[in-house]
Design a protein around this nucleic acid. Structure first.
Length: 900
DNA sequence: CAATCTGTTTTTTTT
DNA sequence: AAACAGATTG
């Protein structure tokens, strides 16, 4: 219509909700009207907002164009601030990064609703006055602290002249509402505004639209409530419902009734599903399938086996369809989450099927090799030398790694010092390898610029780039793309003086922790033509179409699966028109969103649609299909399928290990093994563990731990004043004392030390004991901090933990070592865990019934260590904090020797 | 039979 | 953390 009416493309604004959508749209228009595509403005709300912020930065109160920060930077900014806010209901945990992330997403939601920090605080007080139930009052207390953080964060951004993603839309929306002159001035340059995927707009975007359009009279929107899948970022069914009843009074609505994409069988399936959708504002639509019937129904394949067999089933189907004429590039594989997608990608590749998917760039071996090498320039312990690079001549044997780690243990040498001097006990191969590393890293040091180092390593000093270029298979191309993306990322880092390498590595850890490395996963346009299966999340598939679509993970309990309620729920009334408690609304919206997500996935298919789920879990219990399967109606062919066994073995080969003599393990070593056996291997077997990555909070706890150790060494009771003196000495000699905002940490540390001193006085004090017990031929050691005799003569050993009590504290086996040690070596004593941060005590003696099981569990750990079983347990949460983050991968060849 | 415990599985993201 | 399947317990 706009085309026909001769609209001036220069006066046309087209808004989308993602860069991908903007790119697609731009390309489609360029095909028909290349001149127009170049002239009109096409982009995301955020991009449009950024332009406005730049243009009107003075009106917005900035002295210059503010710098945009991402989530990782925002957390960096706030880390020291939260310590000073004295929050009680959201206590700082060991690492406040997680808490801050929760705060920031709550703040971001508020920005989506154009609710300022002050307004947020008002809403909290309104909620307090309205509902006196204890449940609500509890939420009030928490929301009040969010308001505090919100205010502090906003002030900080103002002071530093920074803006975040939320500001990109919220600030212009506010400005234009407040300042009609600017809005009018903007409107003069715009004839029409087009909004694609209107169901994804949030309040901030609507407000922006209201300001730049003439009360909606020149606004054109396309939207489908059934495809509203971005509710977690403020898109709400209410916005579409309100489109012509409130937001843009007098707007017109029309409905599409013909589908030009999918075959009739597929349209039937998702229409049937849509009829059962419980969705506010959805009207029933009878879609006509323009392309008619194909004669092949959508399928549900209930794969006989576990999750791994589901990949076999998909591989079979991909091969079948290929034989029928659907090339790899015609087929897409969708699932809910990125983690599963990565597994599917690896699995299909292992089964010989090419996939167009990178996964997380920083977790790819070829990128990890580069990161490991970079880390050598700043890591005096040279931990990365324990990595198997897979590049001939560039990997040390386990024996040589042992020798190197011995050599680096004693001296406080600077990084790379080991390259020059010979290392005692090295094999001749090892000496040759070290020589190659000397050549590889020659001339670089901790102050080198990461990009320069990487470029030289790739192009001049190794054959990595050359090998990738000369190879033509899909795996090599994916490697090339991953390295390319990584280099682009490195180059985009802000230039700064000092140690850029350390900061780069630190930033990567944080990005992975926050899962904010996703935009690096995009496959460049140039690679899109490759004949390989397209892998993407259901969210990522929106707006795309494929001749054949495979959807995995259709198990009950995993799809649909309610998202956990936000840690920091919004105050009631923050979401306009939601009515009732904010959390209930969120839960309803969540259910809707999952139905929409399924609808989106189904409607991507043009000809063929196959859904999958495994029918067993690893404990051989049955897993039922998702309830959604039945809701697609009778047109779906549903059957149990036995997939081909591709003989893929994902098990981790044991490491050759030689344990000298009888072993003695500390309890904390067993805990590490339980959390991640591979980490245990690096830290205690190879002994290459460098310093753990710590936050200020953790450093603070470390100081407290040192104070406790010193106080424990004293045989007599210690008064508070002495305890404080000891604390002063340790605090002042710690690195923390000189850090910014250290007073806040000091207050916390002081509380912990005080509590420790007080708990020692709860009875007659006896000194701590180092107890041991045997499991098989191994000995387990546990250090108790002290023991107390109370008035009735009952004796209790205390085991102090400086942090908060967690419900999971008694999961696993190693946690019971104190109980077992007390039972065995200190008869007549009870054993108790005491958490200093909250004073919570756990009487281990109450769990004596589990002792036998736990002892057996510890026996299994000990045996597994002796058998060289060190499989990695990857997790986005813990891996980025692990010292071996850049090292972890295949274990190098050789035999590890170790005396525990 | 209901209640409780155990083990397994599981989320999305805008420059 | 919370849902699910199944076993165990009272």
């Amino acid at each position: 219509m706009l085309e026909r009416d001769n609209v001036d493309p220069r006066r046309l604004v087209v808004m989308t909700y993602s860069n991908k959508a903007a790119g697609e749209l731009s390309e489609r228009i360029a095909k028909r009207r290349p001149d127009a595509a170049a002239a009109m403005w096409i982009g995301t709300f955020h991009a449009y907002g950024l332009n406005l912020v730049k243009q009107f930065h003075q009106a917005l109160g900035f002295s210059r164009e503010p710098r945009l920060i991402d989530r990782a930077e925002a957390i960096d900014l706030m880390l020291d601030r939260v310590a000073g806010l004295n929050l009680t209901h959201y206590r700082e945990l060991y690492d406040p990064t997680d808490k801050l992330r929760d705060f920031l997403s709550a703040i971001s939601r508020a920005q989506d609703e154009v609710v300022s920090a002050d307004r947020y605080a008002e809403l909290v007080e309104e909620m307090r006055a309205l509902d006196h139930s204890s449940e609500t009052q509890e939420r009030v207390k928490r929301a009040r602290e969010v308001a505090q953080v919100y205010k502090s964060y906003t002030d900080l951004k103002r002071a530093l002249e920074r803006i975040d993603f939320g500001d990109l839309v919220a600030l212009p929306a506010e400005l234009l509402t407040r300042n009609p002159t600017i809005a009018a001035q903007l409107r003069e340059d715009i004839d029409h505004v087009l909004v694609d995927e209107y169901q994804d707009v949030n309040r901030a975007s609507v407000q922006l639209l209201k300001a730049i359009t003439n009360q909606g009279r020149n606004l054109w929107c396309v939207g489908d409530v059934r495809q509203s899948i971005y509710r977690f970022r403020g898109a709400s069914s209410l916005n579409l419902a309100r489109f012509d009843h409130g937001d843009f009074t007098g707007a017109m609505r029309d409905q599409l009734d013909t589908n030009y994409r999918s075959r009739e069988e597929i349209v039937e399936a998702y229409s049937t599903f849509a009829d059962g959708m419980t969705l506010a504002g959805a009207t029933s639509v009878k879609l006509k399938a323009h392309r008619g019937r194909l004669g092949r129904p959508p399928e549900f394949r209930h794969i006989d086996g576990i999750t791994e067999n589901e990949i076999d089933g998909v591989a079979d189907a991909i091969a079948e369809l290929r034989a029928e004429g659907y090339s790899y590039r015609d087929q897409a594989l969708l699932c809910r989450g990125n983690d599963r997608l990565a597994e599917l990608g690896r699995g299909l590749e292992a089964r010989g099927i090419p996939v167009l998917y990178l996964g997380s760039v920083f977790e790819r071996p070829e990128v990890k090799d580069l990161l490991a090498w970079l880390s050598l320039l700043v890591d005096r312990r040279a931990m990365a030398m324990a990595r198997d690079t897979g590049i001939p001549g560039m990997t040390l044997s386990l024996e040589d790694i042992g020798a190197l780690s011995d050599a680096l243990n004693d001296d406080a040498l600077p990084p790379l010092a080991w390259l020059g001097s010979g290392v005692a006990g090295f094999s001749s191969d090892g000496i040759a390898t070290i020589a190659r590393y000397s050549a590889l890293l020659d001339g670089f040091d901790a102050r080198s610029a990461p990009w320069d180092v990487l470029a030289q390593l790739l192009l001049d000093r190794t054959r990595i780039a050359a090998d990738i270029c000369s190879s033509n298979d899909m795996a090599a191309r994916a490697k090339g793309i991953a390295i390319w993306q990584f280099l682009n990322f490195v180059r985009a880092q802000p230039l700064s003086s000092g140690n850029a390498i350390s900061r780069l590595l630190e930033r990567i850890r944080r990005l992975v922790r926050l899962s904010d490395d996703r935009d690096l996963r995009h496959i460049p346009q140039a690679a899109q033509g490759i004949d390989a299966i397209r892998l993407m999340t259901m969210h990522g598939s929106k707006g795309l179409e494929f001749p054949a679509v495979h959807v995995t993970g259709m198990t009950k309990g995993s799809f649909p699966k309610r998202n956990p309620a936000p840690t920091c729920p919004p105050p009631d009334g923050m979401i306009k028109d939601a009515g009732g408690a904010g959390i209930d609304f969120a839960a309803r919206e969540d259910e809707d969103e999952l139905q929409c997500l399924f609808y989106v996935a189904l409607s991507r298919a043009k000809d063929r649609l196959i859904l999958y789920s495994p029918n067993k879990d690893t404990a051989n219990r049955k897993r039922n299909p998702s309830d959604f399967i039945a809701r697609m109606g009778k047109g779906v062919e549903s059957r149990i399928v036995s997939a081909t066994n591709y003989g893929i073995d994902n098990s981790d080969a044991p490491v050759a290990i030689n344990l000298i003599g009888e072993s003695t393990y500390w309890q904390h070593q067993l805990s590490v093994y339980e959390r991640c056996p591979r980490r245990f291997f690096y830290t205690y077997v190879l002994n290459v563990g460098g310093k753990r990555v710590t936050s200020s909070f953790e450093d603070m706890h470390e100081v407290v731990r040192r104070v406790i150790t010193e106080l424990n060494a004293a045989e007599t009771a210690i008064d508070l004043a002495t305890a404080r003196d000891v604390f002063d000495v340790h605090w002042n000699s710690s690195e923390l004392a000189s850090r910014q905002a250290s007073t806040a940490y000091r207050v916390l540390a002081d509380e912990l030390v005080t509590r420790f001193a007080l708990t020692r006085a709860e009875g007659t004090l006896e000194p701590g004991q180092s107890l041991r017990f045997k499991v098989g031929s191994a000995t387990i050691r546990v250090n108790f901090d002290y023991s107390l005799v109370d008035g009735t003569g009952r004796k209790t050993l205390r085991y102090i933990q400086t942090g908060h009590h967690k419900k999971t504290v008694l999961t696993g086996n190693a946690a019971f070592a104190p109980l077992l040690a007390a039972q065995h070596a200190a008869p007549g004593y009870g054993a108790e865990l005491l958490h200093l941060s909250d004073g919570i005590r756990v009487a281990l003696s109450d769990h004596a019934g589990k002792a036998a099981d736990k002892r057996a569990g510890i026996g299994k750990i000990v045996d597994a260590i002796a058998a060289g079983q060190f499989e990695p347990k990857p997790s986005n949460r813990s891996c980025p904090k692990c010292p071996a983050f850049f090292t972890c991968g295949t274990v190098p060849p050789g035999t590890a020797q170790k005396k525990f």
